[in-house]
Computed example of a mutant assay.
Amino acid sequence: MVDLSIILVNYKSPQLLLDCLATVYAETTRHSFEIIVVDNDSQDNSRELTLAAYPQVIWIPMSYNSGFARANNAGITVSKGRNILLLNTDTLVKNGALDKTLDLFEARREYVACGVQLLNTDGTHQISGAHVTKGGLNTVLPLPYLGNFVRYWGYKLNARVPSVTSVSEVTDVDWIVGAFVMVRKEVLAKSGLLDEDFFMYAEEIEWCARLKKQGRLCLFEAPQVVHIGGGTSSSFYNADEWNNGKNLWNRRGRQIIISNQLRIYKEFGTAWFLILTWFYVADIPVFLIGLLIEKLVKGKKAKYSWRNFVEYTKNIGVLLRYCPKILSKKPYFYKVS
C-alpha cells in the first residue's frame, strides 16, 4: 500500500495540471505516492499531454462534467493509498510540502484530516480553512448591503471570524479549503465519501462536517502550497467572473447560492435553510433601495449596477424554484445552468 493517493480533477486545464504535476514529482521524494487524474470530459488534449509527460499517472475519464464531488469519489474508489489527498490542479507544491504534511499527519493521529497553509501567487497567505458559524450565517455576508448589516452585528457581538488565513503551527478548524484536503482513508468507511448531490462549491464543507464526527481537523503551518485560484472552474464559467468570487449575480454566483443552501440544509436542517433563504429574498428590496440611494449620491461611482440587481433577483428566483427539491431530501445533481 502506498503512503498517499493524490487525486486531481481536470477540466480543460492541461497546462495547470502539468505545472501542478511537475511540482508534485519534484518536491515529493520521501514518501510513496500514486497520482490519479479524473477528467471531467474535457474534450481536449489533456490526456495526451499528461500521459506523454507522466505515463505513470492513472487517468480516469468521466463521460460528462461531473463536478468536484463525483469526480473525486471516482478517484477515491480506485485509490490504493493509506491516505487520500484531494489536490486542485491550480496548485503548486513548494519545498517538499507533501512530504512535510505526511510526516506531521502520521505523527498526529488525533486528526482524521488536514490541510496546509495556502499561498497566493505573490506569497501572501490565503484562506486555508475555517470555523463553522451557527447555522452557516457567514454565507450571507456577500449579500449587497444586507451582508454589511450582518457583519456589523457579528463584530458587535464579538463573533469569531470564521476564516483562517494565517496558520499557527497546528490550527484546529471545522473545515478545510478543498484545494488541499488530506484524509486518512480508514475513516471514510464511517464518514462516507463526498456528497454527490453537489456539482461545485460547498461540498468540502459538508464533507468536513461528517469527517469531524470521526476526529479532529487541522491546518499545518510549515507545509505551504500555492493556490492560483479559479483554475478549473474558470474553464466552465466565464474567466472574468473569477475577478470577484463574491458576486452573486452571475452564473457562478447562481451555483454558489444553490450549493451553499444545499449545504446549509444538509448540515443544519430545515429551520436554518429557511432562515437563510429569507435573507436572500429580503435582500432584494434592500438591494433596490440601497442601490437607488447610492446612485443618487455617487452616480457612476456606485459599487453596484442596475444589471447586478436584475441578475441577482433572477438568481434568487432560481433558488426559490430549487427550494422544494432541496427540502424533498431526494438525491439530485444540483448542477445549475
Rank of each mutant, 00 (worst) to 15 (best):
N247Q: 15
S235E: 15
G230R: 08
R252Y: 07
C208P: 01
G192H: 05
R210T: 03
G192V: 08
R251G: 15
F220N: 01
E203N: 02
L193T: 11
C208E: 03
D195F: 07
T232H: 09
V225S: 02
R251N: 15
K246G: 15
K212V: 04
W207K: 08
E204T: 03
L219N: 01
S235F: 14
E204A: 02
N250Y: 05
V187P: 06
N243P: 10
E221G: 10
A209T: 15
E241M: 11
N238G: 12
M200Y: 14
L188Q: 10
R252I: 08
D195T: 06
V225L: 04
W249H: 13
K212P: 01
K212Y: 02
W242T: 13
E196F: 04
K185C: 14
H227P: 06
P223V: 06
S235T: 12
S233H: 10
F198Y: 06
Q224F: 04
D240A: 14
R263I: 06
R252Q: 08
I257R: 00
L262F: 02
R263N: 09
A189V: 15
A222D: 14
L217V: 05
V226I: 15
K246N: 15
N238K: 13
L219A: 05
N244V: 12
R216D: 13
K185M: 11
I257T: 03
Y201L: 04
C218V: 07
W242N: 14
G253K: 01
T232I: 15
Q224A: 08
E206D: 14
E203S: 03
V187S: 04
L248M: 12
L262M: 00
G215S: 05
S259D: 03
S235W: 08
L193F: 14
W249Y: 11
P223T: 07
W242R: 10
K212C: 03
S259Y: 00
N247D: 14
F236D: 03
I256G: 07
C218W: 06
P223K: 00
K212W: 10
A209N: 14
L248Q: 08
L211Q: 05
N250P: 09
L248F: 12
S259Q: 06
